[in-house]
Design a binder for these strands. Structure first.
Length: 434
DNA sequence: TCTGGGGTCCTAGGACCC
DNA sequence: TCTGGGGTCCTAGGACCC
């Protein structure tokens, strides 16, 4: 059943979604390989060890908020012996795959929504006890991967999100909650703050509260026209989803990506153009590699620089380059990017971040030859294949472009001072003498 | 020289997500 | 001193065309 705004009265609930969400995912990954962390406050940091992006329940209980800068909680960390880890994306990505693989045992119709979440289509499972089924999912994932998960089940994705949220909070639910039966629906919705609803961010939450809508139940029963006017068509879909009318089906094969971004914040500000040029070349290399992995080419390249956004003299500038022919060739893209950066670089700036975006993506096979094209596309393609093959075999970065630089003091490189070992993807720890 | 409306495409910005 | 990164969708407004 699709989302049809005119027929709200006569709907019937035909779909069943389960949302499986890994608890404190990055922290849980660290705990799998270091059981001493269980039961203790643990946090995982963003790039450059800047902010806390994952927190164990014990860390949350200490009042450590999502994305809080580490320097603001230094004392808290010290006094409570909080265990602190740099992020280890290779490890988390690999653990994520194991979790998702396990979930395919329960239905082939699953949508990997993010690194730590998946929606399962359980419409075919209505005759069985859904709570039991959810419990089975939970224990199996935990047994096979070591990652604790919560399971929320309901008639729409938005309600499954809410069920999951409550499953985590409620002691009685103990990690699994089925909201497909309408019996406790109002009670459940009333228990969820409006800001916790999927699709309601900070701005909308503030606006809704100012208008007397504090929880999910009040939002569900809000006036359609009022919501449509203030939150657009998305808001209307949200109301329908809360009312049990599914607007967002499972998407098993995600459509081709529409853009690629690569950017990093520097630990220390950079003033020199040469260093920025190196950083940009490195980001372009990463972005182009991603394009080639997906057999895509880009038609637009954007380069930007910015100084510290928390300071008064904040400076941001960007340039959008329309490429003559869509491409995924690293050296070609580096050429454009360097040219673009020279145009927006302002001398004397203390730059904290730079990045590139690739837009207007399309399939490699459809590249339109251009009469004025000066690049030998066949030759470039073969070279790129060779580079990718070697980097795959020898490890990422085995072959780099000269423009990326090779110095030991590349201050633009990201710091990870408390990183755990890549237990699942590298074998070097087996050689360590302990 | 003035007059009208509708459609499409593009872009920038704002909101959200994890 | 120290503040992450990578995405999506929608909307409004302008340019342009008929």
């Amino acid at each position: 059943m699709s989302c049809d705004y005119g027929k709200i009265g006569k709907h019937f609930m035909s779909s069943v979604f389960a949302l499986v969400d890994c608890n404190n995912f990055y922290v849980s990954c660290e705990r799998v390989f270091n059981p001493k962390l269980v039961g203790r406050p643990v946090i995982v940091l963003s790039n450059n060890d800047g902010c806390a992006v994952a927190r164990s329940n014990e860390a949350k209980a200490l009042g450590i908020k999502m994305a809080v800068p580490v320097f603001q909680i230094k004392d808290l960390i010290k006094h409570n012996k909080v265990q602190v880890y740099s992020s280890n994306y290779a490890l988390y990505g690999d653990m994520s795959q194991r979790v998702m693989q396990t979930l395919t045992q329960f239905t082939p119709d699953l949508e990997i929504y993010s690194i730590d979440e998946a929606f399962l289509d359980l419409a075919g499972c209505k005759r069985i006890n859904l709570t039991e089924y959810g419990r089975n999912i939970k224990t199996t994932v935990e047994k096979w991967t070591g990652i604790p998960v919560s399971v929320g089940i309901a008639g729409t994705k938005t309600l499954a999100k809410i069920a999951n949220h409550l499953a985590k909070k409620s002691k009685k639910a103990n990690g699994v909650l089925d909201l497909t039966t309408a019996k406790y629906m109002d009670q459940a919705l009333a228990a969820v703050a409006v800001g916790e609803v999927w699709g309601v961010g900070r701005k909308y939450a503030g606006f809704l509260k100012a208008n007397g809508i504090d929880n999910a139940l009040q939002l569900r029963d809000a006036d359609d026209n009022f919501i449509k006017k203030k939150m657009g068509i998305v808001g209307l879909r949200l109301l329908n989803e809360l009312r049990g009318i599914s607007c967002y089906p499972i998407e098993q094969s995600p459509p081709r990506r529409k853009s690629v971004t690569v950017s990093r914040t520097f630990k220390k500000a950079i003033a020199s153009l040469d260093e920025l040029l190196e950083a940009v070349a490195a980001y372009v290399s990463t972005g182009a590699e991603k394009l080639r992995q997906e057999n895509s080419v880009a038609g637009v390249l954007i380069v930007y620089v910015m100084t510290n956004r928390f300071k008064d003299d904040y400076y941001y500038n960007s340039v959008t380059l329309k490429l003559p022919v869509q491409t995924n060739d690293t050296s070609e893209l580096i050429g454009y990017a360097r040219e673009g950066l020279r145009g927006i670089y302002k001398k004397g700036g203390q730059y904290k971040k730079t990045g590139i975006l690739l837009h207007d993506l399309g399939p490699e096979t459809l590249v339109q030859a251009n009469f004025f094209d000066t690049v030998d596309r066949n030759r470039s393609k073969k070279l790129m294949q060779a580079v990718d093959a070697i980097n795959c075999e020898m490890g990422s970065g085995a072959i780099k472009y000269g423009a990326v630089g090779v110095g030991r003091n590349q201050s633009w490189k990201t710091a990870f001072n408390q990183r755990s070992r890549s237990y699942t993807t590298h074998w070097d720890h087996l050689l360590e003498v302990t």
